[in-house]
């Protein structure tokens, strides 16, 4: 603001009351005033209405209509007052270049380079030590800022709670019998004792038949032919893209779809990604059934579940 000082040395020349710059924009100022007045009255009533709506009712709709309506009408009234009834000018003000004179610039540069340079050049050792100390301070202060936040990842990204012979349970902790799922059914399961765990979520599918008389389809990739049992296959439910639950099972195409970014995994061939951004198959959990007919895991996963990270081999 101070850069405008020259203009304000003395009072500016007066303007006559009927100067056209001071006249309202409205062709019929009385009408504009009437419109603004009506709007402001409506605004006032709107706010009264909000008060009533608040005490009497409990409706967000009425509160919005009264408060919003009041604000809209009052705002319209004030705007109309400003636009149609207040002096419209046009008025002008000068711009002043903000840069200083050449002499001032030189003086500034000189103050920095000569005065500052003088002390730095004379005491190089101190300058260097101060820089060293500050840098060290900056680095060590990052330790508490970052390192105190949480634990190192350690093995947690690689591990799940699935081990040899873990019992499959539903989110309620109920074991799953081989007869529980109809063909074409899906269920989210966890190892017993870890229900609801993000890292351990597994999607259990009883693969659909092609036709009513066909045998259930189980086409496992080589080496995994015995990883399913009675048409059941199980995959990690964590998408290998960004870790969303791969929750959409399309029975007709035998695909699992991740609703987050539409990665599509083929259930019949080891959940390899057929389309979308997911880079890797969903890790498969080898299944077996115990003597009571309840589903269990043959072992844990043979790789890290979920999205990729630097330490993943």
């Amino acid at each position: 603001m101070s850069d405008d000082a020259p203009r304000l040395e003395g009072p500016l020349p007066p303007a006559a009351l009927d100067d056209p710059h001071l006249q309202p924009y409205a062709k019929h100022p009385e009408r504009a005033q009437a419109v603004a007045a009506v709007a402001m009255v409506v605004g006032f009533l709107g706010f009264i209405g909000f008060g009533v709506a608040y005490w009497v009712g409990d409706s967000a709709q009425w509160e919005a209509v009264t408060l919003g309506g009041g604000l809209l009408a009052l705002g319209f009234g004030v705007t109309a007052w400003g636009k149609y009834l207040m002096p419209q000018g046009p008025f002008e003000e000068e711009r002043h270049e903000f840069h200083s004179t050449e002499a001032e610039r030189e003086a500034m540069t000189a103050a920095v380079t000569e005065r500052g340079g003088m002390v730095l050049r004379r005491r190089k050792l101190l300058g260097g030590l101060f820089a060293l100390g500050s840098t060290a301070m900056g680095i060590v202060l990052l330790f508490p800022l970052l390192r105190s936040l949480g634990p190192k990842p350690g093995n947690t990204l690689f591990e799940t709670n699935w081990t040899k012979n873990s019992q499959l349970v539903t989110v309620d902790g109920r074991p799953i019998h081989v007869d529980d799922l109809a063909v074409g059914g899906v269920l989210t399961v966890f190892p017993r004792g870890y229900t609801g765990s993000s890292q351990d979520q597994v999607i259990l599918i009883r693969l659909a038949q092609l036709g009513p008389l066909d045998p259930p389809l189980v086409i496992n990739p080589p080496g995994r032919t015995d990883w399913g049992v009675q048409g059941y296959v199980a995959y990690s439910k964590m998408c290998t893209h960004l870790g969303c639950p791969v929750g959409l099972y399309q029975e007709q195409t035998q695909q699992l779809v991740c609703p987050c970014h539409q990665s599509i995994f083929n259930v019949l061939s080891g959940a390899i990604p057929e389309f979308g951004p997911a880079p890797r198959p969903l890790p498969q959990l080898p299944l077996t059934a115990d003597s009571a007919g309840n589903l269990r895991s043959q072992s844990g996963f043979n790789q890290a579940v979920g999205p990729g990270f630097w330490e993943r081999p």
């Binding site: 020349p13 303007a15 009351l17 046009p90 008025f91 003000e93």
Partner: peptide, 18 residues
């Protein structure tokens, strides 16, 4: 209004005859 020349904002508005 558009046709007028712009002027600085006046400090005083004269209530004297124009």
């Amino acid at each position: 209004v558009e046709e007028l020349d712009a002027i600085p904002v006046p400090t005083y508005i004269d209530l004297v005859p124009p």
